[in-house]
Computed example of a mutant assay.
Amino acid sequence: MKPTTLQVELGDRGYPIHIGAGLLTQSALYAPHLTGRIALVTNDVVAPLYADRLLASLGPAGSDAIRVILPDGEARKDWSSLERIYAALLAESADRKTVVIALGGGVVGDVAGFAAATYQRGIACIQVPTTLLAQVDSSVGGKTAINHPLGKNMIGAFHQPRVVIADTATLATLPPREFAAGLAEVAKHGAIRDLEFLAWIEANVAALVARDPVALEHAIRRSCEIKAAIVAQDERETGVRALLNFGHTFGHAIESALGHGTWLHGEAVAAGMVLAARLSARIGRIAEADVQRLEHLLAALGLPVKAPAITPERWMEFMGRDKKNQGGRITFVLLDALGRASVVRDAPDSALREVLAAA
Rank of each mutant, 00 (worst) to 15 (best):
T42A: 06
A112D: 14
L24C: 07
V128H: 10
N147L: 04
L132C: 10
R345E: 15
G328L: 15
A257S: 12
G339R: 05
P161A: 00
A300T: 04
D167S: 04
G272N: 02
S93D: 10
N204K: 04
P16G: 15
L103R: 00
A116D: 09
I220F: 06
R37V: 08
P161V: 01
V274E: 06
W79N: 06
H218N: 01
A116F: 12
T170H: 11
I123A: 05
D336P: 05
Q26Y: 14
W263T: 14
V240T: 14
M316A: 14
K324L: 02
A47E: 03
L40S: 09
K227H: 15
V343M: 00
G73N: 12
Q7D: 07
R162H: 15
G272P: 07
E317K: 11
L54A: 04
R53V: 12
G190K: 03
A115W: 02
P129L: 15
V100S: 11
G327N: 04
A117G: 03
A56Y: 12
L279H: 01
A102R: 00
I126Q: 11
V100W: 05
R84F: 03
R353K: 12
S342P: 04
I286V: 04
N153F: 01
R13P: 15
A117H: 04
I17A: 02
I69N: 01
M273K: 00
A347Q: 01
G320Y: 12
T118M: 01
A56N: 13
I101M: 02
Q326C: 10
G109W: 02
